[in-house]
Design a binder for these strands. Structure first.
Length: 189
DNA sequence: TATGAGATCAACT
DNA sequence: GTTGATCTCATAC
């Protein structure tokens, strides 16, 4: 199956173009990962984005230009990974919310504690735990090991909806998913 | 199936 | 002191 590595050029566009195109792409971290089935776009002009109020130590990577991983701690417990998009300074990113486990399932299971395969990577915190992504990887380039992001071979059917778990800008339909996937963090309505 | 508590930290009021 | 781009487990229906 032909897959092309995605470079920073791919990410240097609007999050609204990049996010739907990431559905069906492959994310690997040290060779472990799978097919991206759910993402959300966060634009700096909108209050749900971490960059909305300007730069802080936590979100600095968002301001450094496209093609990097932005990793932050969620609820003091979990890690979540974003792909930074748009030109440098735009500070917008795509949150990777769920993947379909394909490579390194043994490692993922071990890290996750032998959970149901369906729950291995179906959520932003879950997938970071399964792949072993932490803040130690914040700011790393997405086209260089340990990261590997491969473009999809064919265009899948993409569904959209409102974003999950936020209390600001709840009306924006900037959640994208692979239609019919059983690995979504929540079904699309 | 649904709701609630707890874990625990960066940023904000 | 409160909130949040979350998840798990316990208890109730």
């Amino acid at each position: 199956m032909p897959s092309v590595k995605l470079h920073s050029r791919f990410f240097a566009r609007s999050v609204h173009e990049v996010a739907p195109e990431l559905i069906g792409a492959t994310l690997l971290f040290n060779g472990v990962g799978g097919r991206i089935v759910e993402v959300e776009a966060y634009h700096h002009t909108e209050p749900a984005a971490h960059s909305f109020r300007g730069q802080t130590p936590r979100n600095a990577v968002m301001f450094g230009g496209p093609g990097k991983a932005y990793v932050y701690r969620s609820y003091g417990i979990h890690w979540c990974v974003n792909f930074v998009c748009e030109p440098a300074g735009s500070a917008s990113a795509v949150l990777i919310r769920a993947i379909e486990p394909l490579e390194g399932q043994t490692k993922m299971r071990r890290r996750r504690g032998l959970k149901d395969e369906r729950l291995l990577c179906s959520g932003p915190g879950r997938l970071c735990e399964a792949l072993g992504i932490t803040v130690a990887h914040n700011g790393l380039a997405l086209d260089t090991p340990p990261f590997q992001v491969l473009g999809r071979a064919e265009k899948p059917e993409v569904v959209t909806g409102v974003r999950i778990g936020i209390t600001k800008a709840m009306e924006l339909p900037w959640r994208y998913g692979l239609k019919g996937s059983r690995y979504l963090s929540k079904p699309f309505r």
